[in-house]
Simulated scan of single mutants.
Amino acid sequence: MERTFLMIKPDGVQRGLIGEIIARFEKKGLKLVAGRFEVLPEDRVMEHYAEHKDKPFFPGLKAYITSGPCFLMVWEGKNVVSITRQMIGATNPAEALPGTIRGDFALEIGMNVIHGSDSDETADREIAIHFKPEEIVSFEKIDEKFLYE
Results as ranks from 00 to 15, higher is better:
residue 90 A to S: 15
residue 90 A to E: 15
residue 148 Y to V: 03
residue 55 K to M: 10
residue 29 G to S: 00
residue 37 F to S: 05
residue 125 R to V: 15
residue 134 E to A: 06
residue 60 G to W: 08
residue 39 V to R: 04
residue 2 E to A: 02
residue 130 H to S: 11
residue 116 G to R: 09
residue 64 Y to H: 07
residue 124 D to P: 00
residue 136 I to R: 04
residue 33 V to C: 00
residue 126 E to D: 15
residue 17 L to G: 07
residue 109 I to N: 08
residue 54 D to L: 08
residue 5 F to E: 15
residue 61 L to I: 01
residue 127 I to M: 09
residue 125 R to E: 15
residue 143 D to L: 08
residue 105 F to G: 07
residue 105 F to T: 02
residue 45 V to H: 08
residue 117 S to R: 09
residue 64 Y to C: 03
residue 8 I to H: 13
residue 140 E to D: 09
residue 73 M to S: 10
residue 31 K to C: 08
residue 112 N to W: 10
residue 82 S to V: 07
residue 132 K to V: 08
residue 103 G to F: 12
residue 93 P to S: 03
residue 149 E to A: 06
residue 115 H to R: 09
residue 23 A to H: 11
residue 91 T to W: 12
residue 98 P to V: 00
residue 130 H to Q: 10
residue 63 A to S: 14
residue 53 K to P: 06
residue 83 I to E: 15
residue 74 V to L: 15
residue 135 E to V: 13
residue 130 H to N: 10
residue 145 K to M: 13
residue 76 E to W: 05
residue 18 I to L: 11
residue 72 L to S: 14
residue 50 A to C: 05
residue 40 L to R: 03
residue 30 L to R: 03
residue 5 F to I: 13
residue 59 P to K: 05
residue 121 E to N: 04
residue 8 I to W: 12
residue 38 E to I: 01
residue 108 E to Y: 14
residue 53 K to Q: 04
residue 30 L to V: 13
residue 136 I to P: 02
residue 41 P to W: 08
residue 87 M to K: 02
residue 13 V to E: 10
residue 87 M to Y: 07
residue 38 E to G: 09
residue 20 E to T: 14
residue 135 E to H: 01
residue 67 S to V: 04
residue 65 I to P: 03
residue 64 Y to A: 05
residue 28 K to F: 12
residue 148 Y to A: 02
residue 63 A to N: 13
residue 145 K to L: 05
residue 81 V to K: 07
residue 36 R to A: 07
residue 79 N to C: 07
residue 105 F to Q: 09
residue 146 F to G: 06
residue 78 K to F: 07
residue 75 W to G: 04
residue 116 G to V: 11
residue 88 I to H: 13
residue 112 N to Q: 10
residue 81 V to F: 06
residue 42 E to V: 05
residue 74 V to R: 03
residue 31 K to R: 07
residue 34 A to S: 07
residue 43 D to C: 03
residue 57 F to T: 00
residue 89 G to H: 11
residue 79 N to G: 04
residue 139 F to K: 10
residue 1 M to S: 04
residue 131 F to E: 06
residue 98 P to I: 09
residue 130 H to G: 04
residue 110 G to T: 11
residue 11 D to G: 03
residue 49 Y to H: 02
residue 87 M to W: 14
residue 126 E to C: 04
residue 141 K to L: 10
residue 17 L to H: 11
residue 6 L to H: 13
residue 132 K to W: 09
residue 124 D to S: 12
residue 75 W to P: 02
